[in-house]
């Protein structure tokens, strides 16, 4: 028994506590974000949005989630069964893993690894694979179209995203996320890297398949894209992963450009969450401001504008670093 107590006091205990905390955060965050999305959308269109369940419809999403969990899980007859069942699980894995390294405050981080950024970016690749699995296994033309679009888009926007985040990393000289926040003691990196911030937010919006880059799930053309054939909680997992991915890219933006947990008076994690939700609000704002781009515009934009700009920004950063 002593053995057990000793183990729970160490890294393993920290991991377990972290895992429980992360799963709680993921579900609460998704419930909140769906409500926020509906409210933001409604107010931008001069409607009240959900109002009936709870204060200003605050527990509407809980009711929706309960309904979703009670629904039947339908497996279409012609699907590639094993891959079809595996896809919602694979899409959720990288989401959970990314929280391993995100520092919510100076001390509130599950495991402060020296390859933090790389971990998040590497596992994001699994999301692409999962989308492809879902689309292919569904054996439905709309699902396949949606997943192919999604993969082409993700591959195109991952390159400028990676190059863009290299600029602040070059300034800090470390992949560790807490080091990156610590380096912003004097000023936030949005001041010295404004172009990188704009590039990052653009790429992040595309990476999370949000409007105006939401071609993979364009309702008017593709029903629902890669998750057309999923129902009940399997669809719920895709939904949860999507909203959590939004949280993760916003958290990275906060860490890289907005000084992470830094801020006066309030405790660190409050500042962190405030900044994260501010970025998420910005991404939601895009959705009701810009019309959906065409597919050729989307790919041209990534290869001919974003990638050269990201490279220019990186070179300029390196030059300034060398001269200083």
């Amino acid at each position: 028994m002593d053995n057990l107590v000793r183990i729970l006091g160490t890294d393993l205990g920290r991991m377990l506590a972290g895992l429980i905390g992360v799963i709680a955060l993921v579900s609460v965050n998704a419930l909140f974000l769906i409500w926020m999305e509906r409210k933001v959308a409604a107010h931008m269109q001069l409607r009240p949005g959900p109002m009936e369940v709870g204060w200003h419809g605050a527990i509407q999403t809980i009711a929706d989630a309960l309904k979703l969990m009670g629904k039947e899980l339908i497996t279409p007859a012609e699907v590639d069964r094993s891959v079809y069942l595996l896809a919602p699980i694979v899409v959720f894995l990288p989401v959970l893993l990314s929280f391993l390294v995100i520092p919510f405050s100076q001390t509130l981080v599950i495991r402060d690894m020296n390859v933090g950024v790389l971990l998040i970016l590497a596992f994001a690749a699994l999301t692409v694979l999962a989308i492809l699995m879902a689309g292919w296994a569904s054996n439905n033309k709309y699902a396949v179209f949606g997943s192919i679009r999604s993969v082409a888009q993700n591959v195109a926007y991952e390159i400028p995203l990676l190059i863009t985040v290299m600029s602040p990393i070059l300034m800090v000289g470390s992949y560790r996320l807490t080091d990156i926040v610590a380096a912003q003691e004097k000023f936030w990196f949005i001041v010295s890297q404004p172009l990188a911030f704009i590039l990052y937010i653009t790429c992040a919006t595309a990476e999370t398949n949000r409007a105006p880059f939401d071609l993979p799930e364009a309702e008017s053309e593709l029903v629902a894209g890669f998750h057309t054939e999923y129902s009940g909680m399997r669809f719920g997992l895709f939904f949860l992963a999507e909203y959590t991915n939004m949280f993760i890219v916003a958290a990275l933006a906060t860490i890289f450009f907005l000084g992470g947990w830094r801020g006066p008076v309030l405790p660190g994690w409050v500042w962190f969450l405030l900044k994260v939700y501010a970025i998420i609000f910005l991404i939601m704002w895009f959705r009701w401001t810009f019309p959906r781009v065409r597919f050729d515009q989307l790919i041209t934009f990534a290869w001919k504008i974003l990638i050269p700009l990201a490279f220019a920004n990186l070179l300029l950063t390196a030059l300034v670093m060398k001269l200083m």
Binding site: L118, L121, A122, F123, A124, A125, L126, V128, L129, L132, V151, V155, E158
Partner: peptide, 11 residues
């Protein structure tokens, strides 16, 4: 390995 082989090569 994951970033290059799973994320790029497999895709």
């Amino acid at each position: 390995e994951i970033l290059i082989y799973v994320g790029a090569i497999c895709i």
